[in-house]
Nucleic acid binder design. Structure first.
Length: 153
DNA sequence: GCCAACGTTGGC
DNA sequence: GCCAACGTTGGC
């Protein structure tokens, strides 16, 4: 089983959206970055665990955890001309973009702030801090555990 | 709302 | 295939 961190702007889609969704399950779509897409399509598997990161908001940081309930499949939004994620260059035979389905595991009582994550040596090297644009990034088992341990503090 | 960083595009 | 210009992201 692998660990990941997914980034989202909570104004668009935050952990509360997931918490109130049917079966607390939702499609994680709109990924339009190639490196993130490659991770998603090739490496994110069913039952993998995911940290939910809130970006560009008041409380930036990790808001909770999710489980991948369905591995990558073509993102329907890319074929929808009405969608802002529409991509005219993508075809059904050769889809460019992928999405997964996720289910809420745990909403943290407090968002674990970016500041505290950077202050902790075990989490300071999370790939999202090194590579800002990556909205789907791997997390090591050690980093995952370190994040869970920060809850207890 | 600003600005730095970085990914993508497009002309050569 | 390089690289400048442009657009977007994301922290402050």
């Amino acid at each position: 089983m692998n660990y990941w961190i997914f980034k989202s702007e909570p104004d668009e889609f935050g952990i509360d959206h997931l918490a109130t969704a049917k079966k607390q399950t939702a499609r994680w779509d709109g990924i339009r970055n190639y490196q993130a897409r490659n991770n998603l399509r090739d490496n994110v598997k069913q039952h993998d665990r995911v940290l939910f990161y809130h970006s560009s908001c008041k409380q930036i940081g990790i808001a909770g955890t999710m489980e991948v309930v369905k591995a990558a499949y073509p993102d329907p939004a890319q074929f929808d001309a009405e969608s802002k994620y529409y991509d005219a260059k993508s075809t059904a035979d050769n889809p460019r973009w992928y999405c997964v389905d996720v289910r809420l595991l745990e909403k943290y009582p407090e968002v674990i702030s970016t500041k505290s994550l950077k202050a902790n040596p075990a989490t300071a090297d999370l790939s999202i801090f090194k590579q800002g644009r990556l909205s789907i990034a791997p997390v090591s088992a050690k980093q995952w555990k370190a994040v869970q341990d920060m809850l207890a503090d």
